[in-house]
């Protein structure tokens, strides 16, 4: 009995500092923001602060730029499965007998740590439409009109997806690498004895075994995709013609360029709802393909 009480107290003491911090720096601002979404607040001085009910939400329904940002954001999500897939392939390669494993692993992981502001400009020069090395290479290979990459409304988002895949892949790779080492040898060997080819071993033994991790990486990746800001802000700023404008950029622009704080909160809350829906969707979808032992 006494132990139980002490246990209770210890539990609270352990989590208390973190709870206080999270309440102050996350929860309270979040609730505050929820409140703002129902106002026409135009700035920190509070001029004209009026409760406007659902006006902002109604405006959202007919805001073409908002819906464009939603579509762009969903398109941008494409880098998540790409990055998980490539991460798996690279991890599988590194999991075999290969020379320089440590050096290779480091080069694959390093981009994950580099700031988007710093590396964004390097990418811009690489993808420079006329003088960049990528297009110069394409031209010398005989491509007559190489894509304009970040300069074109058609290719800007695919280019951004390439960069995002490049940046997030390392994390997925490291996690896969670890899990692959845990796939029980006897399962693989048993399959081989039954005459399974190596792709069948991957398909029927490895993939099911690692499916919980794959699921986890997809969920985390999706959340981050809806929150990302720095890289796109650095390489395109949302352009050309809003073709890479995703929701976090639109929130920032509405709040700090137009100073429509109330409306910005409304967009931000919709963003939160969208993230929540996607996570739920993935959660219920997982039953079809994730195996827990």
């Amino acid at each position: 009995m006494k132990w139980m009480k002490r246990q209770q107290l210890a539990g609270y003491l352990f989590v208390l500092p973190s709870i206080i911090g999270v309440t102050v720096f996350f929860l309270i601002p979040l609730l505050f923001s929820f409140g703002l979404a129902f106002t026409n607040w135009l700035g920190p001085t509070g001029r004209d602060l009026r409760f406007v009910g659902l006006t902002n939400f109604r405006r959202l329904l007919f805001d073409g730029i908002f819906w464009k940002a939603v579509r762009n954001n969903v398109f941008y999500l494409l880098h998540v499965p790409l990055s998980v897939g490539v991460g798996f392939l690279v991890a599988s390669g590194l999991n075999r007998r290969v020379f320089f494993r440590n050096g290779l692993r480091a080069s694959f992981f390093l981009p994950y740590l580099i700031s988007a502001v710093a590396i964004g400009f390097s990418w811009m020069l690489l993808f420079h439409p006329t003088q960049g090395p990528i297009n110069q290479l394409l031209v010398s290979l005989g491509v007559r009109n190489p894509p304009l990459w970040l300069a074109s409304t058609k290719y800007a988002m695919p280019t951004v997806i390439i960069i995002a895949t490049w940046q997030s892949m390392g994390f997925n790779m490291i996690i896969f690498l670890a899990v692959l080492q845990e796939v029980p040898r006897h399962l693989k060997e048993a399959a081989q004895i039954d005459g399974a080819k190596s792709w069948q071993v991957v398909r029927y033994v490895t993939l099911p075994y690692i499916s919980p991790i794959t699921f986890f990486l997809l969920v985390i990746g999706t959340m981050n995709a809806f929150k990302s800001f720095g890289m796109i802000q650095a390489v395109t700023g949302g352009g050309p013609v809003n073709s890479t404008l995703i929701l976090p950029l639109y929130v920032y622009r509405t709040a700090f360029r137009y100073y429509e704080m109330g409306y910005a909160s409304t967009i931000a809350i919709m963003l939160f709802v969208i993230i929540f829906l996607f996570t739920m969707l993935q959660w219920y979808g997982q039953r079809r393909w994730v195996y827990y032992d």
């Binding site: 139980m4 246990q7 209770q8 210890a10 539990g11 609270y12 989590v15 709870i19 999270v22 720096f25 996350f26 929860l27 309270i28 601002p29 979040l30 505050f32 923001s33 703002l36 920190p44 959340m223 809806f226 929150k227 800001f229 929701l247 976090p248 929130v251 920032y252 709040a255 700090f256 704080m261 910005a264 909160s265 931000a268 809350i269 963003l271 939160f272 993230i275 929540f276 996570t279």
Partner: peptide, 26 residues
Amino acid sequence: QFRGRNLLFGLYLLLMMVPPQILFVP
């Protein structure tokens, strides 16, 4: 083990989904 543990942790999971841009102004 303490009372309210899962509820509190659930809150953390929920907050993981909050886009940081929401929080700037407050």
